[in-house]
Design a protein around this nucleic acid. Structure first.
Lengths: 234, 234
DNA sequence: CTACGTTCAAATGTTGACATCCGGACAATC
DNA sequence: GATTGTCCGGATGTCAACATTTGAACGTAG
């Protein structure tokens, strides 16, 4: 059994706000006002404040002295940063996981991949799809068993989630055509214990995602765009 | 000029507590009680609380629900984790920095290395020595210019500081004999733009430090040890 | 018309009081 | 005698009031 643990209102608040960001309920660049959130979540400002600090740790939110917190905006440069760091982390994670792999653990990864494949086949919505995708990677970090590495992963994880979400929405077909196969390949390599090829593949896997997303963002949008306060006037 | 920015009491509190940990004023594993700190720092508990959250982000402190915060303990396994992650980050940082290197920036690195060399020659104390060492690495991350990477670095930086401090104190001679030369070599490689060799070297540089420290910690202590509440009874 | 100083509402930063929880000591039970 | 239940001191979690800062609107001088 995995130990149950209580987390307090701050974590609860962070979860709610994070979900709101993921659902697009608050737009990138939007201000997150403490009193506003406190009343709508029915908790005190202190808890909201602490929750926002958690989200800042995840890189989902930026805050400045006496100027409050804002949802991050995602320029192509930001995407570049996040995926570059992620590639480095993933490289280490898979390499370490390979050393600690056991049949049981690898089986769990296969199960997660199967689930993702089924979800893709049955046309599940993007958030659920992505949760399964992320669960796979989370498990790899868990297998690696390096707490500091996991912590670093959590420093970009939410941002990756946000970016992947737009990636799926912008180019669903391309995403679904590669993800499952890449996960399967990773499991195979973990089974074989070919650390060298594995780390290279993991790095390349993330890096190709980076390139794809940057390309999409740089290209003129296909769909009507939502106006944002930060945008340059036409 | 670098922009000046105010930070509030929480950051101030975090700085004080961090320094106290570095100075050994509070021992590894010791509890950090909020009221106690609040009175001694003459700020409210709220600010202390926020400060502790900052230190938790840096990995210097661990806290649990309704059980407060404690200074991290450093087992050989912890050292392993921190340096492994650091190696991955440093690898990426130097590689990225190589792409963005300019004569001015490289000159700054040389200046920092010179300062470290002088400090070593004049027998400066460990904390000052280490600050110069760290300043060099900080500058590399700054040159790399990847905010997410820098943030990840700050997630282990304080722990590295703590570990390096004990490393210097345990084996001063070994440390001083290699650091300056390694820094110089890094600058040379940055100048040459040999990214391949550079990333390898950076990774190896950190990894050798890891091995050295783990070896020291595993070996029976040379100097009388301070008793700690967490220790197993003799 | 630009640059500077002033004013003011709205937001965050800070604080101390109240509520909740943890863990050890002790007693009761099987 | 080991387990379970109850209490209580001490700590953290939560809250709402007070202090401070910001930046934008406004007015004014050059």
């Amino acid at each position: 059994m995995r130990r149950a643990r209580r987390r307090g209102l701050a974590h609860e608040a962070a979860d709610r706000i994070r979900d709101a960001i993921f659902e697009g309920l608050v737009q990138p660049g939007a201000a997150l006002r403490e009193v506003e959130l406190a009343t709508s979540l029915e908790v005190s400002r202190g808890s909201v404040r602490e929750g926002l600090a958690i989200l800042e740790r995840e890189g989902l939110v930026r805050s400045e002295w006496h100027r409050g917190a804002r949802v991050i905006d995602m320029s192509p440069a930001d995407v570049d940063e996040v995926y570059t760091v992620r590639a480095a982390l993933e490289r280490l994670a898979t390499g370490t996981a390979a050393d600690r792999a056991t049949p049981e653990r690898l089986a769990e990864l296969s199960v997660l991949t199967d689930a993702l494949e089924r979800a893709l086949a049955s046309g599940t919505d993007a958030p659920t799809l992505l949760s399964l995708d992320m669960a796979f990677h989370d498990r790899v970090y868990e297998i690696a068993g390096n707490d500091r590495l996991t912590q670093a992963w959590y420093g970009v994880r939410s941002q990756v989630y946000l970016f992947q979400l737009t990636r799926i929405r912008l180019g669903h077909a391309q995403y679904r055509s590669v993800v499952v196969e890449e996960h399967r390949q990773m499991v195979r390599m973990l089974e074989r214990g070919d650390t060298r090829a594995l780390t290279e593949a993991a790095e390349e896997h993330v890096d190709s995602a980076r390139r794809a997303l940057v390309r999409m963002l740089a290209a003129p949008r296909q769909e009507p765009r939502v106006e944002r306060p930060g945008d340059a006037p036409a």
